[in-house]
């Protein structure tokens, strides 16, 4: 039933495809585009493993229809930084041991990008609430909080340097 042509920008590249009405964005990203860094953890928009950036905002791609993303600008974990380089958040997660099994990590990083965009200098409490839609079963969150703090500091330094 219902096929639709969609065109969107994913990680800077334009993508056109014909998709079913019901195709979930997370499956389009993972299976049609083979961008498997975006994961599925719960199916009910509780865990955040499927979090991607859509038009500058973090969203849960398991609860979003692909057709609705027609015309959107999407960033997945694969597009966060140029190959071989780390964004401040990626570097901070590495430095602070903010990941164990890595399954929640892409969603956690994308979510943190949005958090730091709207709140560049968050308190620990604001970080904890800010990532509350992303579950991690390994780290106990202490080091994720530290990772986001480190990235915030580095981003502030960079901003200051560029002024």
């Amino acid at each position: 039933m219902g096929k639709h042509n969609v065109t969107m920008t994913i990680n800077g590249e334009s993508v056109t495809a014909e998709v079913d009405s019901r195709l979930l964005l997370v499956h389009f990203i993972r299976e049609n585009l083979d961008l498997t860094g975006t994961h599925i953890g719960c199916d009910t928009s509780n865990c955040g493993a499927c979090t991607i950036m859509l038009d500058g905002k973090s969203i849960k791609s398991c609860t979003y229809l692909t057709v609705r993303a027609d015309g959107a600008n999407i960033t997945t974990i694969e597009g966060v930084a140029a190959e071989g380089t780390n964004s401040h958040l990626q570097q901070a997660f590495h430095d602070q041991h903010g990941l164990h099994c890595g399954f929640c990590t892409p969603g956690m990083i994308i979510r943190s990008m949005d958090l730091l965009k709207t709140n560049p200098n968050p308190t620990e409490e604001e970080i904890r609430w800010g990532i509350s839609g992303n579950l991690c079963r390994c780290t106990g969150y202490n080091n994720i909080v530290k990772s986001v703090q480190q990235a915030a500091t580095e981003m502030a330094k960079e901003k200051e340097a560029s002024v």
């Binding site: 928009s45 973090s58 849960k60 609860t63 979003y64 949005d114 509350s132 992303n134």
Partner: peptide
């Protein structure tokens, strides 16, 4: 709003 779902859900 602070108590509703989570930030990514609230984005949509």
């Amino acid at each position: 709003i602070w108590l509703t779902a989570d930030p990514s859900v609230r984005n949509v």
